[in-house]
Design a binder for these strands. Structure first.
Lengths: 167, 167
DNA sequence: TGTCAACTTTACATCGTGTCAAGTGATTGA
DNA sequence: TCAATCACTTGACACGATGTAAAGTTGACA
């Protein structure tokens, strides 16, 4: 809080006049970033897709390219989740939003009869959701040094391998 | 530290006589768990495997079933990584050990000419390492409510889909 | 009997979050 | 024009956690 106040050019106490807690500041920041980066527009392509497979690819691309934009914030928010129920709820809410996208993509695949027979929609959604986690992005891009393009390419391939009927 | 001391039945200060910092206590605990759970024995199957594919499956099973045993500790250790370089190094060391297992499994696949042509061994290792992350286990088992068997089954299938040449 | 090791109690420094109170200065509305 | 109000300031403090320091207790062992 001290650092943020310093960066903004006000006193630490003044920060508390705007945001009652550190968690609320971070949550407000996520809302602000969302409105600036216009998540809805990014997902428009995905919703407009005609085939299930196109919808999946488009959703992965939209979310995958959004991750780097929110990554710093996500680190801060996640590190608070242990001690702060409000922060945990905020993070969980964001992840549930991603899950809804996964549900939609999996539903579109199922409608196309493209979903593997040995997966129900719930498990397929869980798998896709897991593959698309921020942690996996961090691991591949930050820790392993992959480019964003490599990440998106491999995760798309892997998601298709995970969910689609053979051939 | 207060809670641990209370649980052990000694004073908080006495804890500091044994472990200079909280991080060192956690690190010592990982060493202790390793020696008790005998990681080497768990990996023996994997090292004895004759085919690359068997080695992969066996490694996934060994590590995948080890994750729940160290999960609580891994949460504690990871939550310190932000502030504590020593804890970060300890966690990284553990994960590098897992990576070595991935390298060996990928190498065995490559030796069998079973590795996809569009993956070099490094990227294949990165992918497998990512799939086998503790975070993915947490996500599927803890957050999505999967059983350990479902986790191991799907991760094995997914790893094969990710790495193996198409049939 | 004396020494040493393990442990105890007590006290304190530091850091971060969050609270509280009193004061300042500029805008605004009657 | 005067007073209220708003946004901010400074300064102090409580709390919890980690870690340090010092002096005292207890029991084993030589």
């Amino acid at each position: 809080m001290t650092d943020i106040a310093k960066a903004v050019g006000i006193s630490r106490q003044a920060l508390y006049l705007h945001f009652p807690t550190r968690a609320e500041l971070l949550i407000a920041t996520t809302r602000h970033i969302d409105s600036i980066k216009d998540v809805d527009a990014r997902l428009a392509d995905s919703r407009a897709a005609t085939s299930g497979r196109a919808r999946l690819a488009s959703f992965i691309s939209a979310w995958g390219s959004y991750i780097p934009e929110i990554h710093g914030l996500s680190v801060a928010l996640r590190s608070m989740c242990d001690n702060d129920a409000e922060a945990a709820a905020a993070w969980d809410g964001r992840m549930q939003a991603v899950r809804h996208g996964c549900v939609a993509a999996v539903g579109a695949l199922a409608a196309d009869k493209m979903l593997r027979a040995d997966l129900n929609e719930d498990m397929a959604t869980d798998l896709l959701w897991t593959l698309l986690s921020v942690e996996n992005w961090e691991h591949l891009v930050r820790d392993c040094g992959w480019s964003q393009a490599e990440y998106e390419g491999q995760i798309t391939r892997l998601s298709e391998a995970a969910l689609l009927v053979k051939n």
